[in-house]
Amino acid sequence: MEFQGSILIKFILLLQCFSILCASQSQDFDFFFFVQQWPGSFCGFKKGCCYPTTGKPDADFGIHGLWPKYNDGSSPSNCDPSKQFDQSQISGLTSSLQKNWPTLACPSGDGITLWTHEWEKHGTCSQSVLNQHDYFETTLKLKQKANLLKALTSAGINADGGSYHLSNITTAIQDEVGFAPFIQCSVGSSGNSQLYQVLLCVDKSGSDFIDCPIFPYGRCDSKIVFPTF
């Protein structure tokens, strides 16, 4: 009986070590995708949207998320169920999040559901470098460093429903940020390809933009619409 008990204890310890190892590996990653989206395209692509309970967001790019990635393009997700979203951890960031990371999902909300999803699916996989508060604060700082609307309007590319060359959009953002973006398009109500999301790559610390090791799949037409909002 003592021998069997010893084997059982060793087996339990082995399982615990394996769980710890898996958890640490699941939180390992190579870089981030920093994703901003244009609300005019979101509302058209999603066949409608709902403004937040705080009111219609500014006509500006909003944050979609900061997503840990592997160099092969795959992603860790939902890495630590024990680290659930804690609203108190971002109490000092709420007004900035509502402005820069607004929800457009229906029914209308205050943003908590969106931020909960982003933290628990993506943020928990970055805990080796960013706790919950740092995750959101870092993402807000990245938006300040990558002012997409300023970059585009300075290049004469305006959210006026007109069509613009994809190469000009890419160049304008690269000139502003210093690194090439990946542009994601959606299909508008008229069937035209339209500017939807802009992805930039960020180093593992969340501090600096980098050349993207890999881009996601997808393509845009050579000319795309920049819809109004």
Rank of each mutant, 00 (worst) to 15 (best):
S74T: 15
G111H: 10
S41H: 08
P76H: 03
G62A: 07
S91P: 05
P52E: 08
D72W: 13
F85E: 02
W67N: 11
Q98D: 06
Q84N: 13
P39H: 01
C106R: 08
H64W: 13
K69C: 07
P57K: 01
A59H: 04
C50V: 05
Q89S: 15
I63K: 03
S41K: 05
D60Q: 07
C50I: 06
S108E: 08
S96V: 06
D58H: 01
T53K: 15
S96L: 14
P102Q: 05
P57F: 01
Q87G: 11
G44K: 10
P68M: 13
C79H: 01
P107E: 10
K69A: 11
G73F: 14
G40F: 09
Q37D: 04
F45V: 09
P52H: 04
D86P: 02
W38M: 00
Q87L: 14
S75P: 07
T103I: 01
P102D: 01
G62I: 03
W101R: 01
Q87I: 12
G44D: 13
D58V: 00
G109V: 03
C43E: 09
D60W: 01
P76G: 04
D60A: 03
I90N: 11
Q84D: 07
Q98R: 14
G65M: 11
A59C: 06
K46S: 15
W101T: 08
K69E: 13
A105E: 14
I90L: 12
N100Q: 13
D86M: 04
F85L: 02
Q98K: 15
A59M: 03
G92D: 14
S82K: 13
A105S: 14
P81F: 02
F61P: 04
P68G: 12
P107L: 09
W101D: 02
G111I: 11
A59G: 09
P76T: 03
Q98Y: 06
P76Y: 03
S108L: 07
G40P: 10
P107W: 10
C43D: 14
K99M: 02
D60R: 00
Y70W: 09
Q84W: 09
L104A: 00
H64V: 11
S82H: 09
S91K: 12
P76C: 02
S96D: 15
Q84K: 15
C50S: 06
C50F: 03
